[in-house]
């Protein structure tokens, strides 16, 4: 039966491996100019691992970014009018 220390060590190795995978995907994302920060990318990876379709996720991300930009513009415009 594995000891508590072994289990802890296994968990640490798995966490380090997961971090390494996210790091490499983040580098690829930068090379492809996909404009995703590390935290957003790691949520996207979790969503994909939970069965979400990548194309559907990409369209959701584009839509959310567009909405955020529009909101930002509205805020800047309302500040300019004051």
């Amino acid at each position: 039966m594995p000891s508590e220390a072994n289990r802890k060590q296994d968990k640490e190795i798995m966490a380090a491996q997961a971090r390494q995978v996210i790091d490499v995907f983040h580098e690829i994302s930068t090379l492809l100019n996909a404009d995703l920060d590390r935290q957003t990318l790691s949520i996207c990876i979790s969503l994909i691992e939970n069965g979400v379709n990548p194309e559907a996720l990409a369209s959701v991300i584009k839509e959310l970014k567009k909405d955020a930009e529009e909101t930002q513009k509205e805020i800047l415009q309302s500040r300019g009018q004051r």
Binding site: V24, F25, S29, L32, S59
Partner: peptide, 23 residues
């Protein structure tokens, strides 16, 4: 990536390709 991650690599790369903007 081919060495590290197996199961979901293609799907994650697919997402990055869809989001890619004039690299």
């Amino acid at each position: 990536i081919s060495r590290l991650e197996g199961k979901w690599s293609s799907e994650i790369l697919h997402l990055l390709l869809e989001l890619s903007d004039k690299p």
